[in-house]
Design a binder for these strands. Structure first.
Lengths: 334, 334
DNA sequence: CTGTTAGCGCGTTCAC
DNA sequence: GTGAACGCGCTAACAG
């Protein structure tokens, strides 16, 4: 037996298809009794509205796209679960678009905006990108951005990376450390990746405020993998005069530092204290002292904002910029 | 300016919409010259076929759903990236469906099958489930299953968990270990989760073949988190007579064991050797000796199978069951 | 309040 | 080979 359509429901309830449609879309102008009859018919037939038809006539896809570069980053995954939770509850589909090459991001966005495959987009990208192009292609497309310091024209959710860097460093200083190093991914914000760079700036500011100097030898930058961070940490840890603590721009980088320390037979935190940033799940397992930003919450928030936009046609002024709180999570490594 | 439709293309190329449609769908019966004209028009207008309309009339969504329980597991993510790579290249969308509650899986599947939102489904689930129900609801829905030992009616991709357990244990035995423990998640396959149970069976078989006995005190089962594994490993490692090696059913469990060893001041692998299973990316960073199953490849394969099915209407007999190879990856922990 | 009608953009017949 | 007509299931605008 064919899957039932709105027509079947209408026949069964003894009404016209228009009425069924109204019930489906929560139109207020349907008599209570009629609504009940229709609802019953829907129930009995196990009717599910056809998404494609809905989209074709109404223009809505009930799908939200999530765009992000390589999504193997633990932080991305945690945000994604948050997004999923909310979209799922609202009966929206989540389509995943990955950005393989950063320089193709704009091109991909263009294609996406044209194809009308999604009602809205959640972009998770800490790199700078040209918002204007999206707006030109699709001026009305709801877009929410997570984890980006450079957004101006869309609602976005972010953290104060600078403040986070200060927090972490202050914490280390309070614990008696005077010689502190930094392991990050980029040394400047030249390429548009800004998160860890801001954290690094906060790190420097904190040291300066405490009258401590930044030892450039103790600061290393490079690839965003644990492996690379491990290689980067080694030279710092084998210096004749080495720092007593290292602040890593991401938890994953901190894991690399920990691995290096272990290889060199250094005890953590006695010989070397290590501090991360993000508080991804593994941080808890590995007992890493870190700065928590609530990743899942950022995802949930992003999804809620998109849904709000989709429902109301706009996002409330006060929800436009959300700055999530940061919190030191003291554990075993610092 | 409105996004161009097939009609615009037809006008511009001076043909009927039927012809454009034929070109779009690669129908052979279009004169070469006409085809060129249409292609040119498409190019010039930047025309993209509307997915919803296509689905509504043709029945295809160009979307593949991926269904899986909580997708924070690293192994799932790695498979997912593999799937994404292939689908993306074929211009298919990937929709993520997460199974929040295992007991609702069947219900979710039913809803999915009814709504026709996807052309096919890739199910990543090591637990037993009722394939028949899917087939009853949607007899023609292409479905490919990854990581499941109990599949009968659908193409699937799996590994020989039993053999993997034997491999790992043999390796440890060859390295001189006679006292080997096991940390897994489930003690039996009663609840339908079979992967680690099979690995455990292989473990026992290997020990038996070597004339070694299984010490039940050294085998612990429980929650699937590193945290839980750490708690589970402690009592084993503090036993008066403790094993010299531990084989963990998953890499993540092995990380828990490593953490416990570290807490107790045990040196790895001298005091205690640790072996994992899966070779997720972190295993490399943490230098974990483990058994590799190529996770990304399993995802790619799954996606290719679905696409094959979608294109040809069937999956070749020889591709029906794929058993991926396993390989010992010797690193620092065993 | 409710039934009816006209598209939404495209694939798929048919005739030509 | 190719163009025109119909229908996919639904929403929105229009009569009643």
């Amino acid at each position: 037996m064919r899957t039932p359509t709105i027509k079947d429901v209408a026949d069964r309830a003894g009404v016209g298809i228009g009425t069924v449609s109204r019930v489906l879309n929560g139109s207020p102008q349907v008599r209570q009794e009629t609504r009940q009859r229709v609802l019953a018919a829907i129930q009995e037939l196990g009717f599910k509205p056809n998404t494609a038809a809905r989209q074709l006539s109404g223009g809505r896809t009930f799908t939200v796209g999530v765009v992000s570069p390589i999504f193997t980053l633990p932080s991305f995954i945690e945000r994604l679960t948050g997004i999923q939770d909310i979209l799922d509850a609202a009966n929206y589909d989540l389509v995943l678009y990955s950005i393989r090459y950063v320089d193709q991001f704009q091109r991909q966005l263009r294609a996406l905006a044209k194809q009308n495959r999604v009602d809205g987009l959640i972009i998770i990208l800490s790199m700078h990108f040209y918002e204007d192009e999206i707006r030109q292609i699709s001026p009305t497309l709801p877009v929410v951005v997570i984890d980006n310091d450079t957004i101006e024209h869309y609602p976005h959710i972010m953290i104060d990376n600078y403040e986070g860097g200060r927090l972490a460093t202050n914490y280390l200083i309070e614990r008696g450390h005077h010689a502190i190093g930094f392991v990050g991914d980029v040394r400047s914000d030249a390429f548009g990746f800004t998160s860890t760079y801001r954290r690094y700036e906060g790190f420097r500011a904190s040291l300066a405020a405490a009258g401590l100097e930044v030892n450039e030898e103790w600061c290393r930058f490079g690839d965003l993998s644990e492996e690379a961070a491990r290689h980067r940490a080694r030279p710092i840890l084998t210096l004749p005069r080495r720092p007593t603590a290292i602040f890593a721009g991401y938890d994953t980088l901190a894991f690399g530092v920990l691995a290096a320390a272990q290889e060199l037979g250094l005890r953590v935190p006695d010989d070397i204290a290590v501090m991360g940033f993000d508080d991804i799940q593994t941080a808890n397992y590995l007992n890493l002292t870190t700065v928590r930003q609530n990743l899942a919450e950022s995802g949930r928030l992003g999804a809620r904002l998109i849904l709000e936009w989709l429902r109301n046609g706009y996002v409330d002024e006060k929800d436009w910029v959300t700055r999530l709180p940061l919190e030191i999570i003291p554990r075993a490594t610092a």
